[in-house]
């Protein structure tokens, strides 16, 4: 009885800030300015222009997730090994940037990647030609990877550190070398962490608009920017809502796909 009472504030919170907005979105997406029912907002989206933006968003989110994973797995693994002595220092290094404002962090990249930025000064110092990075896909990708990397590291780290080291010893005892231990024991047992890492990076990355706005430049358009533009600049909340719903549906599908893939891998 007591425990259900404690949940009431949370339920109210969820209702006001999640359930109600979703219904508002649905309401706007299926209506016109005059309030009559329509599916035009959806059919409008299926034009080469908008589909192109959607594809680009998925493309960027996909690669930033992959790069995050490639960087995060070894880091998480090193963090989880008990021989590693400076664990807390390294964890702190990943956490401290998260204490800083997200916008400030992203703006910092402007100064690093800009034509006269830190990176190019450094390259010039070494005698290399300057490269144009800012306002390209590469800059947005770097920004996305930087922003979402901790969301990949921590779930993987948490599932790796839950693995009982005796299991690893058991495998070694039966003749497994370190490669085989990694392939057949550690990797499969860290799959739940990988799954949540993938979703925790992919979902916000696909819907991002701030990173792409700052590091991609004014004309850079991802699905998040498109939604923002519809609400804030064009003022067409009906079309904006429809795009939001489409994105929501796609993310749900992606989420289900990952969890079924992981579950299959676990039972095999």
């Amino acid at each position: 009885m007591k425990s259900t009472k404690l949940a009431i504030p949370y339920i109210i919170w969820i209702f006001i800030f999640t359930i109600v907005p979703v219904f508002l979105l649905i309401n706007y997406a299926f209506s016109t300015n005059t309030g009559s029912f329509t599916i035009d907002n959806f059919s409008r989206f299926f034009s080469p222009l908008y589909i192109g933006i959607l594809m680009r968003s998925f493309y960027m989110a996909f690669w930033s997730t992959i790069i995050c994973f490639i960087i995060a797995y070894p880091v998480a693994y090193i963090l989880s090994t008990k021989e590693f002595k400076n664990r807390n220092v390294l964890i702190l290094l990943f956490i401290v940037p998260m204490w800083m404002n997200f916008l400030v962090r992203t703006y910092a990249w402007l100064f690093i990647l800009g034509n006269n930025g830190v990176l190019n000064i450094f390259l010039g110092f070494l005698g290399f030609p300057q490269i144009r990075l800012l306002f390209t896909d590469a800059a947005v990708l770097i920004g996305l990877v930087y922003t979402f990397l901790p969301f990949m590291i921590f779930p993987i780290y948490s599932s790796l550190s839950k693995i009982d080291y005796k299991i690893v010893e058991g495998a070694q005892d039966l003749g497994a070398n370190s490669f085989y231990v990694m392939l057949k024991i550690i990797f499969p047992l860290s799959l739940p962490g990988i799954a949540s890492g993938l979703t925790m990076v992919f979902m916000p990355a696909v819907a991002t608009f701030l990173v792409s706005n700052i590091l991609g430049g004014g004309g850079y358009m991802l699905i998040g920017n498109l939604i923002e533009q519809q609400f804030m600049i064009v003022g067409n909340r009906h079309f904006g809502s429809a795009i939001s719903l489409i994105l929501l549906a796609l993310i749900l599908v992606f989420n289900m796909l990952i969890s079924t893939l992981i579950r299959e891998e676990e039972t095999n």
């Binding site: 009982d164 005796k166 299991i167 010893e169 058991g170 005892d173 024991i185």
Partner: peptide, 10 residues
């Protein structure tokens, strides 16, 4: 080969 106290099964 070893039989572990906690079994260490996979």
């Amino acid at each position: 080969n070893t039989v572990f106290q906690s079994y260490a099964l996979f």
